[in-house]
Simulated assay, not measured.
Amino acid sequence: MSDPILSLTGVRADIDQYHILHGVDLRVPKGELTVLLGRNGAGKSTTLRTIMGLTTVTGGQVRFRGEDITGQPTPRIARQGIAFVPESMGIFSLLTVRENMVLAAVSGPMDEQRLNWIFELFPPLKKFWNRPAGNLSGGQKQMLAIARAVIEPRELLLVDEPTKGLAPAIINDLADAFEQLKQQQVSILLVEQNFNFSRRLGQSVAVMNDGGVVYAGQMAELADDEDLQQELLGLGLGAHQ
């Protein structure tokens, strides 16, 4: 495993009166795609939100590129090179695709070369460039959400359940896009429930349960061990081929 670009050590977080994270230890290797798995309610989405400063850390430490970012404001975390695509996608439905992208390019005008690269990743965005984002299909909205996150160079991309509710053909298109992002050496932490998608893309994997990480290793090792899958997740990846 390469040196981590992101590390969480003993991270605890509460939402209202509820204790959600109970000492999360997590490493995201630089330049790799790490999948965060676990049953519903395990704390996966809260972990992403905590990294971004959207949920208050009550204990432990979050480090990015070796720097302590625990408790920093979300805009400052984003400016350091971390982008977040929430499960809700966070697009502006009444604005056009172009206007959504312009708002995401906070450093100034969009770079034409990078925009063309995004159009190669997600051709529908070019086709519907001047249409309201709310008129896009679910898969196209997810493409827009990811495109917004990478319109400026990012070192780390956090993505929460990108395939949820999408058709298999769209999921395959998203997988191709993530493969290209990996080739660009973008480090990615992906929360996902689709096991085939996870197995195809993931290099490293962490499994959460009850607010903590209970397993961390290589995705290939977990994918080859159905007994371990059953123990950690309650089902085997082989059932989803």
Rank of each mutant, 00 (worst) to 15 (best):
T34E: 11
T34Y: 03
T34I: 06
V35P: 00
L36C: 03
R39V: 14
R39T: 11
N40C: 06
G41N: 11
G41P: 06
G41F: 09
A42C: 04
G43F: 01
G43K: 01
G43S: 09
K44L: 09
K44N: 08
S45A: 09
S45K: 10
T46Q: 08
T46V: 12
T47N: 04
T50F: 02
T50P: 02
T50L: 10
I51T: 01
G53R: 05
G53N: 11
T55V: 15
T55W: 09
T58P: 00
G59L: 08
G59V: 10
G59A: 10
G60E: 10
Q61S: 11
V62N: 00
F64G: 01
F64K: 00
R65S: 11
E67M: 11
T70R: 05
T70Y: 04
G71E: 10
P73R: 08
P73S: 13
T74L: 00
T74I: 07
P75W: 07
R76D: 14
R76F: 02
I77R: 00
R79A: 14
Q80M: 14
A83C: 09
V85D: 12
P86K: 13
E87N: 07
E87K: 04
S88K: 05
S88M: 12
S88Y: 13
S88H: 14
M89I: 13
M89Q: 15
G90L: 07
G90F: 06
I91F: 02
F92Q: 09
L94D: 15
T96C: 01
R98K: 14
R98Y: 10
R98F: 02
E99P: 01
N100A: 06
M101A: 09
V102C: 01
A105T: 13
V106Q: 15
S107D: 15
E112K: 14
E112H: 04
R114K: 12
N116T: 11
N116D: 15
N116W: 01
W117K: 11
I118V: 15
F119A: 01
F122D: 05
P123C: 07
L125F: 08
K127Q: 15
F128T: 11
F128L: 08
W129E: 14
N130E: 15
N130M: 07
P132Q: 12
A133F: 03
S137R: 08
G138L: 13
G139Y: 02
Q140Y: 10
Q140P: 06
K141A: 07
Q142F: 03
Q142Y: 06
M143H: 08
M143E: 13
A145K: 04
A145M: 07
A147H: 01
A147D: 11
V150A: 05
P153Q: 06
P153D: 12
R154I: 13
L157A: 03
L157S: 09
L158Y: 02
V159F: 03
D160V: 03
